[in-house]
Nucleic acid binder design. Structure first.
Lengths: 225, 225
DNA sequence: CCTAACTTGCTTGCTGACAAGTAAGCGAGG
DNA sequence: CCTCGCTTACTTGTCAGCAAGCAAGTTAGG
């Protein structure tokens, strides 16, 4: 399981930028895989292809490295949200079709960024260094809500409804990915295959269609208050 | 945050049964709150109102204590599923109404058993001792699927559909509870209040209604294959 | 140019803290 | 007095953090 150093180290020795990035990535992997406590700075250094002391040298302390890793991860998420919004708005399709695309995007994102998911999940469980990055989450969260509202054509008043929709979207797309080796097989699915992912996308889209605004024929006594 | 010992210790000294139970409960709390690595046997002993060495004395090793905690938790979950099934079947209502009750049960269960949720989540992240309790999960998982199928009146053929439904139900009910201090506020909800829980129940029920079988008027080109 | 002084990137040795596991001990009941 | 329940001391290992050191450049002085 211990993969060899990321850099075969011919390109250049003594490149601080490169080393910082390698440590950041190694830290993200190890914190995500093993958690904060179980990850030693020595292991991070080795995984980054450097010595055991280097993470401490660049980041000062384990807590600071962890914080840097989180910042990086949240920045990536923000970027993904913005890219998705651009794409959805350019396509100019009706909400129901956009929704299918958004679901697909979310499912693909979590499949492509398992480390991010696990970091977030561990944060939610109260791991990591003492201080929680409330501001980081806040920024990403509100951006996601506004993006989703715009993409699906919700009116500004319906923000609470969009919040519920986003929460459900996150739950439906993140949760199975997080539990793909435990709960998902326990329920009876045999290993998350591409077919499973496709079926999930269809299932999730079907469910969430029930939360779109102003679909005629839905009595919807739910006023989101 | 460090609550005082569970037992004020007047009742009886030297009661192995009682001590075992106290250690099991303290272990469940601490493993759930802080994770496997961050929890020391000494802390478990103190939280149980005993000395540092007692958990080791009764359970041999940290890994064995953890395993015992997990077994206990899974047994509780199984019991809840069976009780819910009994209740639903006795009520003899149409699927759509039963669904609302099941959603409510799940939401209430996770609100009442935060430790269980967290333990499961940590397990999914690969924490805990090396061996994973596949058989425990398997038992609970298949029981949950059959219970849900029976409660909602799905035909035996539609098992895959029920599996998707259960996965979505778990996602929608567990996920917000796990993230109630991080993601949920970040999205914009102000603290999981009773009102929030009620709104969530309605929202989730609405969504999942779209996955019930043979509701007339739903074209449902989804065949769950 | 050539080299000496200095800076920067990185490694290695050390220390103190803490935890798991073990074993010896101790008090209370039967 | 002997076993059961429980505690305490000890051993061993690990890790974070620090500090000294070393080597690859970089600058400056002749």
């Amino acid at each position: 399981m211990s993969r060899p150093p990321a850099t075969p180290l011919p390109p250049r020795l003594r490149d601080a930028e490169r080393s910082r990035a390698a440590i950041l990535e190694a830290g993200a992997e190890l914190f995500a895989e093993q958690g904060y406590e179980a990850t030693s700075l020595a292991a991070v250094g080795v995984r980054a292809g450097l010595s055991r002391g280097t993470p401490g040298y660049f980041f000062g302390s384990k807590a600071e490295l962890y914080h840097a890793v989180l910042e990086h991860a949240f920045a990536d998420a923000l970027e993904a949200i913005r890219a998705g919004r651009l794409r959805a708005m350019r396509s100019a399709r009706p909400p129901a079709e956009v929704l299918a695309g958004v679901v697909s995007d979310y499912v693909d994102f979590v499949a492509a960024h398992p480390n991010f998911l696990r970091l977030i999940q561990r944060e939610a469980l109260g791991e990591g260094a003492g201080l929680d990055p409330r501001s980081l989450r806040q920024a990403v969260g509100s951006e996601a809500v506004t993006a989703l509202a715009q993409e699906l054509g919700f009116p500004p008043r319906a923000r609470t409804q969009v919040m519920h929709l986003l929460l459900s979207m996150l739950a439906l797309t993140w949760f199975p990915a997080l539990h793909d080796t435990t709960l998902v097989p326990a329920i009876g699915f045999d290993r998350p295959s591409p077919a499973f992912l496709a079926a999930r996308k269809r299932h999730i889209t079907t469910l969430l269609l029930g939360a779109l605004p102003s679909r005629r024929a839905t009595p919807s006594k739910r006023s989101a208050r």
